[in-house]
Design a binder for these strands. Structure first.
Lengths: 83, 83
DNA sequence: GGACTAAGAATATCTTAGCCG
DNA sequence: CGGCTAAGATATTCTTAGTCC
């Protein structure tokens, strides 16, 4: 998972780490810390949780699993064009 | 990661679990077992390893991280159209 | 409030080994 | 050969707690 892309998508949505974590269903006591760990690459979420992040941030499931910035942009465009 | 999609992509490429694992750089002694575990969902590979599977199988990085079969097909088409 | 880090508890993967068609 | 599973060793994440701006 690409932590930086999660961070940028979160900021683009105007959410704090805590709010994103809560919206994705993480326990309140550790929501902020876990999102911080994911964004920095210190740890990696389960795919199921990454999908919840994607739902909250309105990007496709796979958006945090694309290394190429160009291709990520194109996949995002494809996703948005279908909604 | 979607184990079934890994399995289908491997079979489409005509590779055994052992050959795929070796081509992706897994140690010979455990290549077969690990690919089996990934395909069945018993365990989940690091993203870096999933990317090596993708390289070997000629699919995009994110191919094993898309729940919708339709969207996976479209992302694959987009990937192949750019190569 | 918002974000980052450390360290131990909890949980996952990886290896080794064995079994079945 | 090709594939599946069990169980312990190993490595990871998750929680708790504290700090800084």
């Amino acid at each position: 998972m690409i932590g930086n892309r999660l961070k940028r998508a979160r900021l683009a949505a105007g959410l704090s780490q805590t709010k994103l974590g809560l919206a994705a269903g993480i326990e309140p006591d550790s929501a902020q810390q876990r999102v911080s760990q994911y964004e920095s690459g210190r740890s990696i979420p389960q795919f199921q949780l990454a999908c919840r992040f994607a739902d909250v941030l309105n990007v496709p499931d796979c958006y945090f699993y694309i290394r190429s910035e160009d291709f990520a942009e194109k996949v995002l465009d494809l996703y948005l064009s279908e909604k």
